[in-house]
Amino acid sequence: MSGVVGKRPALSWAVNLSVLFLVALWTLPTFGILVSSFRDKDQLAVSGWWTSLTGSERNIVARTDAPEDAVEENGQWVLSGNVFESGSGTAAAFGFSSREPNAFEAGAQAELRDGGVLSVQENGDYRLVYYEQPEGRRGQRIFVASVEPPKFTLENYERVLFSEGIGKSFLNTMTVTIPATVIPILIAAYAAYALSWMQFPGRALLLATVVGLLVVPLQVSLIPLLRLYNEIGVGKSFIGIWLAHTAFGLPLAVYLLRNYISGLPREIIESARVDGASDFEIFGKIILPLSFPALASFAIFQFLWVWNDLLVATVFLGNNEEQLVLTGRLRELLGSRGGNWEILTASAFVAIVVPIIVFFALQRYLVRGLLAGSVKGG
C-alpha cells in the first residue's frame, strides 16, 4: 500500500506537466498569430513574433542624390540626405559594396574608389564629399544594416476586412454556423425527450438507428444529397447547407442529449405529470433548464465543426464569391498571398477569434455535459 501511495506524487507531477505541455502547445501558436497580425509587414517578413518587442535588424539599399545635385562647399562637392525612406531608423553599419555591405560602423568615414568620402550617421543621415566636381547620372549606392524599433499597426486588419474579402466571408460563415448550430439542437432536444420519457412503438428501433448513423461517414452522402437538393431547388444555397449540417449533426446530438435527459430524476417528471403538466410544459420548464450543460457541450462541438468546415461548404455553396466562407477564403489567400504573412496572420486570427470566444464562454459546461451524457442512460 505504501508503494502505491508513494507513486501518486510522481504520477500527479507527470499529469500536471503533460497538461501544461498541451496548454502551451495550443496557446503559444495562437498567441504568435495574434502578435504577428499586428506587426509591420516588413518586420514580420524578417523576424519571428517573439522578437516583436525588440529592435528588428534589416539590410536596406539606398542611393544618394544624382551627382549633378551636389552642392559646392569650400571647394568640395557635397551630397547629403537620409538613407531611410520614412526618415526614421537606426543605422548600425554601412558599406558601398554588395560584397561588404557592413564594412564600416555608423559614423565612420569610408573612402570610395572614385575619390569620394562617405559617412553615415546612426540616424541615417549620410554625407558624401567629392574633392572634384562629380560626373554621372546615378547616385552612389549605400548598403545599410539598420535596427528599427518595433512597429504595430491596424492596417493589416483594415486590409483584410475591407480589401481581401475576409469581412464578407466572416458574415457568410456566421450566416451558415448560427442556424446550423441552433436547428439540430432544437430538433435533437425534442427527439431526446421523446426517446427518454415518451412511450411509443418502435422507440428502441429508432434509437438503434440513431446510434448506427454515428458511424456513417458523411462523405458518402455528399453527392447524392447535392443531387437531391438540385432537384428540389435548394442546391448551392444557405438553406441547403443548413439542412446538410443539421442532418450530419443530429445523430450525435440525439445520442448525447438522450443519455443526459434519460438520467434526470424520474420523480421530477412524474410529479409534473401528476400536477397536470403536458409534455410540452415538462419539456420547456423542466427538461431544457436542467439539460443546459449537455446542450452547451454539443453546441461547442457543432459550432466548431461548422465554423471550421471546408468540405461541406465547398460542396453545398461552391466557390461563389458572394457565398464563400472563411475557410474557403483562407484557402484562396494561401494560393494568392502565400508570401504576405501580415495578410495570412490577420486573416487566420479573424477566423479563430469567434471559436475561441465560444469555447471559453461554454467550456465550464463541456466536461459536465459530456460525462453525464456518456455514463447515464436507460
Rank of each mutant, 00 (worst) to 15 (best):
residue 106 A to Q: 06
residue 150 P to F: 05
residue 118 L to M: 14
residue 125 D to P: 07
residue 167 G to T: 01
residue 155 E to Y: 06
residue 124 G to Q: 09
residue 145 A to D: 13
residue 163 S to I: 02
residue 140 Q to S: 02
residue 115 G to C: 01
residue 108 A to L: 01
residue 170 F to L: 14
residue 153 T to I: 00
residue 133 Q to D: 12
residue 171 L to M: 14
residue 161 L to E: 12
residue 127 R to S: 10
residue 164 E to P: 04
residue 148 E to Q: 15
residue 152 F to V: 00
residue 112 L to K: 03
residue 162 F to R: 14
residue 160 V to F: 12
residue 134 P to M: 04
residue 144 V to C: 07
residue 109 Q to F: 08
residue 141 R to T: 03
residue 144 V to T: 10
residue 130 Y to D: 11
residue 151 K to I: 06
residue 150 P to V: 01
residue 159 R to G: 12
residue 169 S to L: 02
residue 102 N to E: 04
residue 119 S to T: 08
residue 105 E to M: 08
residue 146 S to R: 08
residue 118 L to V: 01
residue 124 G to M: 09
residue 122 E to V: 01
residue 151 K to R: 15
residue 131 Y to D: 14
residue 116 G to E: 15
residue 135 E to R: 12
residue 153 T to R: 06
residue 124 G to P: 10
residue 104 F to C: 01
residue 152 F to L: 02
residue 116 G to L: 06
residue 163 S to L: 11
residue 170 F to Y: 13
residue 147 V to Y: 09
residue 142 I to C: 06
residue 130 Y to R: 06
residue 164 E to Q: 11
residue 158 E to W: 11
residue 129 V to C: 06
residue 169 S to K: 04
residue 149 P to D: 13
residue 168 K to W: 11
residue 130 Y to Q: 08
residue 135 E to F: 05
residue 155 E to P: 00
residue 105 E to A: 08
residue 154 L to Q: 11
residue 125 D to Y: 06
residue 155 E to A: 00
residue 104 F to Y: 13
residue 138 R to D: 15
residue 152 F to P: 01
residue 105 E to V: 00
residue 162 F to P: 10
residue 106 A to V: 00
residue 164 E to V: 02
residue 117 V to E: 14
residue 109 Q to K: 11
residue 151 K to W: 11
residue 116 G to R: 04
residue 155 E to H: 09
residue 104 F to V: 02
residue 118 L to G: 12
residue 160 V to M: 12
residue 141 R to M: 12
residue 165 G to W: 11
residue 171 L to T: 02
residue 135 E to N: 13
residue 163 S to V: 09
residue 127 R to V: 01
residue 157 Y to R: 06
residue 150 P to G: 02
residue 136 G to K: 03
residue 128 L to C: 09
residue 154 L to Y: 13
residue 127 R to L: 04
residue 130 Y to V: 00
residue 135 E to Q: 13
residue 110 A to P: 03
residue 139 G to H: 09
residue 126 Y to A: 08
residue 111 E to R: 09
residue 153 T to Y: 09
residue 148 E to K: 13
residue 119 S to R: 13
residue 160 V to K: 13
residue 149 P to G: 02
residue 102 N to G: 03
residue 167 G to P: 07
residue 106 A to N: 05
residue 119 S to K: 05
residue 161 L to D: 14
residue 146 S to W: 12
residue 141 R to A: 08
residue 159 R to I: 00
residue 145 A to R: 10
residue 106 A to G: 07
residue 118 L to K: 07
residue 138 R to T: 05
residue 110 A to Y: 08
residue 159 R to K: 13
residue 136 G to C: 04
residue 166 I to T: 09
residue 170 F to V: 01
residue 111 E to Q: 12
residue 121 Q to R: 15
residue 169 S to R: 03
residue 142 I to M: 05
residue 117 V to L: 11
residue 139 G to F: 04
residue 166 I to S: 05
residue 105 E to W: 05
residue 141 R to L: 15
residue 116 G to Y: 11
residue 134 P to A: 02
residue 144 V to I: 05
residue 161 L to K: 07
residue 170 F to A: 02
residue 144 V to Y: 04
residue 140 Q to I: 00
residue 134 P to Q: 03
residue 127 R to D: 11
residue 113 R to A: 14
residue 136 G to Y: 10
residue 106 A to W: 06
residue 115 G to R: 03
residue 153 T to N: 06
residue 149 P to N: 04
residue 150 P to Q: 07
residue 107 G to S: 06
residue 129 V to A: 08
